[in-house]
């Protein structure tokens, strides 16, 4: 290859790299609300491996779940029907990075509002109250989290605060952290641990399709879920809060809750608002 050709190629590569870098930066810093209105498209981060909450349906490659519907409903009310809603699958591990990276505009992914997280991102008002608990195989001798004594193992999700919480409730049990819910549940089914811990709403989804597993014990924490946006995006945050309040007032929020969680035995709308 001639020297000049090589130099051209190298320059092209570097230019592309800089472009990639530049693109990311501008997307995250610009006012998201204005950008959504201009470009008529918004990108939400949602879970893709949690039944009832956010699950990728392999048949049609579409995401379905409570949070998916919530994102669609919010977008429609905030920006109108003609805004395209894009979804990016996230895990507890990757959701913060995706938001900070500017790859997504807002995050609705079973994310608990916590002070440490508030330092890094902004949260909307709470849209769901969950509680952390555990699931075990049917017939297991463990009936509540406190029974996870020394010698037992419990699986948690990397990046989720459920890992720290379970250590407080079951300090002698060994905690295994796995990258996402699908992997975690697969590992549980393979007998890698005696229980899996997460928020009840996520665990409901898992047991709904797997009657061999059941929740054990009462929730031992209260998890307030919030929609997260990057720091400095006050416009979209205010819009989200206003729209959430409106949805709760006119009953469409309750409808959504019942649509996805109505079949769960013992579910009361009041519990999760």
């Amino acid at each position: 290859m001639k020297k000049s050709k090589l130099l051209t190629l190298i320059t092209l590569i570097m230019a592309t790299a800089l472009l990639a870098v530049g693109c990311g930066k501008s997307v995250a810093d610009k006012n998201i609300s204005t950008r959504v209105e201009e470009e008529k498209s918004i990108t939400w981060g949602v879970k893709s491996d949690l039944r009832l909450v956010g699950l990728l349906n392999i048949k049609d490659n579409k995401l379905e779940g409570f949070e998916v519907d919530l994102a669609k409903a919010l977008t429609k009310r905030m920006y109108g029907d003609d805004v395209k809603v894009n979804f990016v699958p996230v895990t507890s591990n990757t959701r913060m990075a995706l938001l900070k990276n500017g790859n997504i505009d807002a995050l609705v992914a079973t994310m608990t509002i916590l002070p440490e997280r508030k330092k890094v991102v902004d949260f909307s008002d709470s849209y769901f109250t969950a509680g952390q608990t555990i699931i075990v195989k049917k017939g297991s001798k463990i009936t509540n989290p406190q029974e996870l004594v020394a010698g037992t193992k419990v699986i948690g999700l990397q990046g989720s605060n459920s890992v720290q919480n379970i250590k407080k409730v079951a300090p002698l049990s060994q905690v295994l952290e796995l990258p996402d819910a699908a992997q975690a549940f697969s590992a549980l089914q393979s007998g890698q641990a005696d229980a899996m811990t997460s928020d009840n709403v996520m665990l409901y989804g898992l047991v709904s399709d797997n009657p061999n597993y059941q929740l054990a014990g009462k929730p031992f924490t209260t998890e307030e879920y919030g929609i997260a946006v990057n720091k400095g995006q006050k416009d979209i945050l205010n819009k989200i809060n206003k729209t959430l309040a409106a949805m709760k007032k006119d009953g469409s929020y309750n409808k959504l809750l019942l649509k996805w969680f109505g079949q769960i035995p013992g579910f009361k709308v009041g519990d999760v608002q």
Binding site: S48, D49, L55, L56, I58, P89, V90, T91, N93, T94, A97, P179, D180, A181, A182, Q183, F185, S186, Q189, D209, N210
Partner: peptide, 24 residues
């Protein structure tokens, strides 16, 4: 790269058997 949710082959496989353990 499956750990950063790159939708490559292993990630897709994990999704499939994650939804139905009989497919493992």
């Amino acid at each position: 790269a499956t750990i950063i949710v790159l939708p490559e082959m292993l990630y897709h496989a994990q999704n499939i058997y994650g939804q139905n353990t009989n497919y493992l």
